[in-house]
Nucleic acid binder design. Structure first.
Lengths: 260, 260
DNA sequence: CTGTGGCGTTGATTCAGATCAATGCCCCGA
DNA sequence: TCGGGGCATTGATCTGAATCAACGCCACAG
């Protein structure tokens, strides 16, 4: 390819530094889906919680461990991996603000997956007992967790549909079309992560992803390094039609507690 | 094969008839994970609910529909399918007592999957509003739904691990070993469903399933029609080692509400 | 500067599992 | 009694994507 000519232009910008560190209480306040939870309850959680910063590559917890904490992801990102013996299979990417496998914590059951930090992460660790206590004690908090869990479930289903119903090339195409959805046509977008990570998220190997990217030219999408341009938007959007039931973002839909 | 010689012996027994029909209130009482929910709350739900019997093959709801009811599966079984255009991909098998995609109902969002009755089903339909009202009103009910949702989530993760980490043959082997877990060695077990359904559940085609069954002889498992015998239990259990993090049943772990 | 190691690309090869096709069996309804 | 339709089996073939391998590029440590 002509990678030599433009090799400088597409270096990735360093990840923007986010808000400075915080106290446990601040972390809870910052979490959107806890907005309806009364302050005192959050205080109670914060009292038995610590903020944890972990560098990329750290293991947050291991498959088969019994949860000691409920973990709120406040910053950075974490990947969940299915492990058997020596090989790992990517399952899901978690971003703020979300809980890491709340189901295991709620049920006092072992984690089914390994969690590893992808980009330097800020986690809020709440004592598992405290967390369960809060869920059983405060209705508003219980509802919040339920919403969070429901959103996670729907995200998983969407992922399954994406993998099971589309070919590798289609997944790549739809991913790119979606990425470029909101930019004016002709304007380039930068891939938001390293390619190997996008490949994982799309359920394929680096190599297959790379090859698919090459093929995109044939469908009106130009790739230069990590810059993506929809050259023929109509062609691209027709060939790779987005389906809201697969590609739609999963919003929180808060349920308001009503007094007994 | 020798299918001719024993063609009579392995006819499937007709499905055992379960308890007779019920009232909506009875259906709720029969649901184990609602045990901790106060009677009056269940009465309230039952007041806006109907029991529905659907024959095999019926569509319970369609992908993209907005839920009008929360659906409790009381009897029979329902399969969830991802649909794109003309082709369907099996996603999950639901058995009693469980909710059909509660996440969609809770969030007032469209179903992501199609639901179709597999074996004649008894469903309890609760008005979606009533259901959400109960969740936001009663803490115990909210907890019950949360447990249910959490269990479903973990079941999905296990399924993903099974599909992503094991080959088709291993999935079949583990399925059979698990099936024969509790019977004395040498004694045959009957497959609990039609083979095509087991194949779906294991994420493969009928043909691949059939071929894998043949191969099982090589690992100490004899197949005759729909009878399965562990001829060399040690061989079989070694070759197809069960992993509790994949093959373990997902139990409910009820959380008890504590007064505010 | 120089080595080392991760990422990305490209090419060749392999392979598990799907697909296509034909046949036999059984059930059920007319 | 016959015929149609679903399920299961078996064989032949195809193919999407993984795997294996080699190379260039860049960042970073010494």
């Amino acid at each position: 390819m002509d990678s030599g000519t433009s090799s400088i232009s597409w270096r990735r910008a360093p990840a923007a530094e986010e808000d400075p560190p915080e106290t446990p209480r601040d972390a809870l306040t910052a979490t959107p889906w806890l907005r309806a939870v009364p302050g005192p309850v959050l205080d109670g959680l914060a009292a038995h919680a610590v903020l944890h910063r972990l560098p990329a590559g750290s293991i947050v917890f291991e498959q088969a461990e019994t949860p000691a904490f409920a973990q709120f992801l406040i910053g950075g990102s974490v990947e969940l991996l299915a492990v058997r013996g020596r090989n790992e299979a990517f399952v899901e990417l978690i971003r703020p603000f979300d809980l890491l496998l709340p189901a295991a914590v709620l049920n006092c059951q072992p984690y089914l997956l390994r969690a590893r930090v992808l980009s330097d992460a800020t986690l809020l660790l709440v004592q598992a007992d405290t967390f369960r206590e809060a869920v059983t004690t405060d209705h508003a908090f219980c509802l919040a967790v339920l919403s969070c869990q429901a959103a996670q479930f729907r995200r998983r289903v969407k992922q399954v549909k994406n993998l099971g119903l589309r070919s590798a090339e289609e997944r790549v195409g739809c991913y790119l079309v979606r990425l470029a959805e909101d930019v004016p046509p002709g304007q380039p977008v930068r891939l938001p992560m390293e390619k190997r990570l996008i490949a994982s998220e799309l359920g394929m190997t680096r190599e297959t992803f790379s090859r698919s990217l090459n093929g995109m030219a044939r469908h009106g999408i130009r790739i230069e390094g990590d810059l993506v341009t929809l050259e023929h938007p109509t062609t691209a959007r027709t060939r790779f039609a987005l389906d809201p039931l697969i590609d739609g973002a999963e919003e929180f839909h808060p349920l308001q507690a009503k007094g007994t």
